[in-house]
Design a protein around this nucleic acid. Structure first.
Lengths: 333, 333
DNA sequence: AGCCCGTTTCGAAAATTATTCGAATCTCAC
DNA sequence: GTGAGATTCGAATAATTTTCGAAACGGGCT
């Protein structure tokens, strides 16, 4: 019965046949203790209900997300949590949507301690970076909204190639009038749009600027811009969306007009969130390995701080085209 | 230049004009210190880079989720994180899918400390409950898979009423042949199916057992069972799904047969996950206030342990019918 | 082998921090 | 006013952490 409250360290020291100092050192991850001695003491400590600080690594890491309402986040969280679990680390999830919120988080984090922060789709300002550095909290940014400076480590995907893959896929199916919906607000969005332009150029197709629409990366944004595209006199036969949410919006706009994908208009999304395969029709999309990104970011965090100089500061994981049922050759081909 | 390393407590005691004992007591949330004295000392401690244990409450709470791949989890996480942030508490998210995983979590949690655990869709076994109690970790179960005993606090929704609301809505639209897909595997699933039966009974309609299908709460499960329902000689004109994922699967099965919702078959989901409104057609569904559930569960956790005896042990939040575009009167009415 | 020098491991002593406990003060009902 | 009980505080004591020197070890060199 482990009920009786923790015996003193000196009692344990006696039982282990070592000095109290040794026990204390083991208890909080100090150096100066041989491996076998440490193991023996640690076992006794644990037996008596003490916590033993793990000699290496950290206990918790923070995941900071702007907003938790896209299916996006879910997979990121999963990737981070699973990679962390392997390293016996717990992941704290926080939503941060303002500098004030960031300050509150930082306050809590430095109070309780953290092994580092993974920041999603947010680039802390220079003031915040300073405060992070002062608190000695390492940082890795996932899908940075701006091209990150050399001082910040980040993980992203090959957005430019992704935009290109999506567009090229449609061109290969025979589409010529291809609309695109995206956003200029974030770096990855600009890269995707640039990929679209590159693919069109590569195929010798002119980019009709009326076919290039910008809006938020939401279903509502996709719906609004798809309506405009479909109202054009020479409406596109295919639409590249800025992400899967927008693609869902495009499907809605099609349904409103009594059009069907892929018969009337082909649609390509971006992200491959789990629900993409549940859509009707199942969405052809560009897969971002979100879980792998989060895992990679976590490993960057835990990577030896000394080895940081060698490691790459920006890692880009590859996107891939996932062909499902929302794309087909244009009518009359 | 807060660089110079932490001065000793006695230095700070001098500066504050109190004894070292007082400073030590403030540093780790001890009693025996007047509020104003405590405030003065705490400010100095923080100024010198010490962490000050919050006198009341806890710093982190744990959210345990079986699997993170339904959009379900997302909203739960959001609810828990936001309720926790208000209380200056951080939320640790962990996926736990086996007793071994639970043990690993418990190990980590007791090592780093936690204010309590929110368990989603999982009811710890009695052995695990014992270990939780031994570690003095309070527990609240969200959407318990079995009727929880009186010893366990839990938060759920009015699943029986929800199943009834869904079915009644279809009956009111004029449907008579109504299929249902659900699961007997969890308590909430059984309650929803019972709600369906109750609504049919109430309306004086017989339940055709071929119309009652069981399968996993996934899009694949919904698709498989919808195919069977649609293949019946007298196929249903409306289908109640066990959750939104299953409803998506039903929509897929309809599309396969060239049928459209709600023209040919009406579909009702359950949960109202964010993507429900993105579907084509936007899904009529029973709303579970997932975020509110998580928030309520969190508040149960942080509720004064002394007051626990008075508090209810099982809280049920109300479901509500959200009518969108996937339901309509049956053909020919 | 014998010696030197740097490294590792350990515990005694010193420094620091936590807890106990009795005294001083305060509160409030009568 | 008075006394019972609660609150606040710090001196003394207990416990823990850190420092630092000594012992033990491991080669490289002569």
């Amino acid at each position: 019965m482990a009920g009786s409250r923790a015996p003193t360290l000196s009692a344990i020291a006696g039982e282990a046949g070592v000095s109290v100092s040794a026990v204390s050192k083991v208890r909080n991850g100090g150096t100066d203790v041989a491996a076998d001695t440490r193991a023996r003491i640690a076992r006794l400590l644990r037996q008596h209900g003490y916590q033993v600080a793990s000699q290496t690594g950290f206990a918790v890491a923070d995941l900071l997300i702007g907003c938790l309402d896209s299916p996006w986040s879910e997979e990121l969280i999963r990737g981070a949590v699973e990679a962390a679990a392997e390293a016996e680390v717990s992941v704290i999830v926080t939503t941060v949507s303002s500098p004030a919120g960031f300050a509150r988080w930082l306050d809590r984090a430095s109070r309780r301690g953290t092994g580092g922060a993974l920041c999603v789709l947010q680039l802390p300002g220079s003031q915040e970076l300073q405060r992070l550095a002062a608190a000695r909290i390492p940082l890795v940014v996932i899908d940075p909204p701006e091209e990150p400076g050399a001082a910040i480590r980040s993980v992203g995907t090959t957005n430019w190639q992704g935009g290109m893959q999506a567009t090229r896929h449609l061109i290969e199916l025979g589409h010529r009038r291809i609309g695109v919906i995206g956003t200029e607000a974030v770096w990855s969005g600009r890269a995707r749009l640039a990929g679209y332009r590159a693919a069109m150029l590569e195929a010798g197709l002119d980019v009709d600027e009326r076919m290039v629409r910008h809006d938020g990366l939401t279903a509502a944004g996709g719906r609004a811009q798809a309506r405009r595209l479909l109202a054009l006199p020479d409406a596109p036969t295919a639409i590249v969306a800025g992400n899967d949410s927008q693609a869902f919006g495009v499907l809605q706009a099609l349904a409103e007009r009594g059009l069907r994908a892929p018969l009337d208009v082909s649609v390509v999304g971006f992200d491959d969130v789990p629900v993409a395969s549940w859509a009707t029709p199942a969405l052809t999309t560009i897969r971002q390995p979100l879980a792998a990104m989060a895992a990679a970011a976590f490993r960057m965090l835990s990577g030896d701080l000394a080895a940081v100089a060698d490691e790459p500061h920006h890692l880009e994981l590859a996107t891939s085209l996932v062909i499902r049922d929302s794309t087909a050759p244009p009518r009359g081909r």
